[in-house]
């Protein structure tokens, strides 16, 4: 009986190895909210030394939200945010995406651009 339980539980564990994606997201659905007063978000992309994959390409006006875009980016990446307005913003930074739905809110606090994740 013990052998049977061991074998069944081992088999169940092994099966789990191929169904993890039913409970863990392997894609990320991203939306950007622009809560600044004077800037328009022009693009949000994942970058490497030589390449760039644009994730959010539509212009996001102040007070608006972008369309939701789904990409195969789950993990830690270097991202690039471009904005135009009173001055041009072009910044790169590290960001971790755990998969599922991610909302990045861009806010302006005393002239400093901050990115809040919700």
């Amino acid at each position: 009986m013990k052998k049977m339980i061991f074998m069944l539980s081992s088999f169940a564990l092994l099966l789990c190895g191929c169904v993890t994606h039913y409970v863990v997201d392997d894609t990320c659905r991203l939306q950007i909210g622009n809560d600044t007063q004077n800037y328009t978000v022009t693009s949000f992309s994942v970058v490497s030394k030589d390449n760039e994959i644009v994730w959010i390409s539509d212009d996001v006006e102040p007070g608006e939200k972008s369309k939701v875009s789904e990409r195969d980016f789950v993990g830690s990446f270097t991202v690039r945010l471009k904005m135009s307005g009173s001055s041009k913003v072009d910044t790169t930074f590290k960001q971790r995406f755990d998969g599922g739905s991610v909302f990045l809110q861009i806010v302006e606090d005393d002239g400093v651009i901050e990115i809040h994740r919700r």
């Binding site: 564990l13 392997d26 030394k49 390449n51 789950v74």
Partner: peptide, 22 residues
């Protein structure tokens, strides 16, 4: 066959960063 229950056990380092996966 290998079995990895956690996607960060064998993450992939590409030119863009570190991808969770298997």
């Amino acid at each position: 066959t290998y079995w990895f229950p956690h996607p960060r056990q064998t993450a992939l380092r590409s030119e863009f960063g570190k991808h969770d996966g298997y």
